[in-house]
């Protein structure tokens, strides 16, 4: 592979130098009719290349995309995304066609006279108003959905979880029996108290600290994010969720898991993607991949930014309750 690569680079440079010395011997600086004809044809060729690439990617890269939203709130995200994508897709295909087809069609020649056409208020009115109308729809739907996702005030009995970031790992804290998190501050970090929880706060004693997230299916989860050192970003792509973790500040986000991890593994698109991945892993002799939800760091945070992750497992609610009851409380851990 590597030898091939260097040969490739060598050939590329060699061809470049050879071509350049050859070409510089031709004089000629201003396009004549022959150039216009040739370049016009290349424009059509390029249009074909562009269309082929766009269509290829749109069809064959579907399998690598994220599967459908695993949160209930994210459904509208997917929907809005589909609408937007169809819209820009159509505009893209039309506009690229016009640009390169016109380049070919109106390529210059001695016999052609350009049309003197400086203005048309009607046309300009049309392409000011049309995007404006389309945007009203997109903005309207987008803002409604944004409100939907960001408003955490109306859910009843949510699971409250603090996600805590530091270079380069994630931790989490469940609010415990009182469903209220004890306050935290970096000044309390000491020994086992790695998240800096204020143990004098009466809400803190029953909190539970974990290194892997378990979420109940069908129940709203409220996340509070903290960071102890630099900016991190808690990115949960499968749930269409992301929020920065900011030192000195608590940020929030919420969603309702829709599928358990197991249900997700059984989705056809996840199976298909896993097959593709495992073909690659098998060839390399690596252990096989099984789908898991992940929380990734998505804000540059230092040298090991690329390896800052936490596993998320979504289970049925009773299973979740059982798991949570097995976790020790902070008052048991921090003596």
């Amino acid at each position: 592979m590597l030898a091939l690569f260097y040969i490739f680079i060598g050939v590329a440079i060699g061809v470049s130098v050879w071509q350049i010395t050859r070409i510089m011997d031709f004089r000629g600086s201003i396009a004549d009719d022959n150039d216009n004809a040739a370049q016009g044809k290349y424009a059509i060729g390029f249009l074909a290349f562009l269309y082929a690439m766009m269509i290829y990617c749109l069809i064959f890269m579907n399998v690598i995309m994220l599967p459908e939203s695993a949160s209930i709130e994210g459904e509208h995200d997917d929907n809005l995304f589909d609408i937007t994508f169809w819209l820009i897709g159509v505009v893209q295909f039309i506009m690229q066609f016009l640009i390169f087809y016109f380049t070919f069609k109106y390529r210059g020649s001695k016999d052609r006279k350009a049309k003197f056409y400086a203005d048309s208020h009607k046309l300009e009115f049309i392409w000011t108003v049309t995007p404006a109308v389309v945007l009203v729809v997109l903005i309207g739907y987008g803002l409604w959905q944004w409100n939907n996702v960001m408003d955490l005030s109306d859910s009843e009995d949510p699971v409250i979880i603090e996600v805590y970031s530091q270079q380069f790992n994630w931790k989490a804290r469940y609010a415990g029996a009182d469903n209220t998190l004890g306050t935290g501050n970096v000044n309390f970090i000491k020994g086992m108290n790695t998240m800096g929880v204020d143990m004098s706060d009466k809400n803190a004693a029953d909190d539970k600290q974990v290194t892997e997230l378990y979420l109940p299916k069908g129940r709203k989860v409220h996340f509070r994010f903290r960071s102890q050192d630099v900016l991190h970003s808690a990115y949960m792509p499968h749930f269409r969720a992301q929020m920065n973790c900011v030192p000195g500040m608590v940020t929030q986000f919420g969603f309702t898991p829709k599928y358990t991890t197991q249900e997700m593994r059984d989705l056809p698109e996840v199976i298909e993607k896993s097959i593709g991945i495992n073909k690659i892993r098998r060839a390399k002799g690596e252990e096989l991949y099984i789908f898991d939800y992940l929380l990734l760091c998505n804000k540059i945070c230092g040298a090991s930014h690329y390896n800052m992750q936490m596993k998320i497992t979504v289970v049925e609610e009773d299973e979740f309750d059982e798991w949570l009851s097995q976790q020790p409380t902070l008052s048991e851990v921090i003596k």
Partner: peptide, 13 residues
């Protein structure tokens, strides 16, 4: 831009 190209006499420099 596209309308400027339309019915032009494009010198493809």
């Amino acid at each position: 831009y596209v309308t400027t190209l339309w019915k032009g006499n494009l010198q493809l420099n």
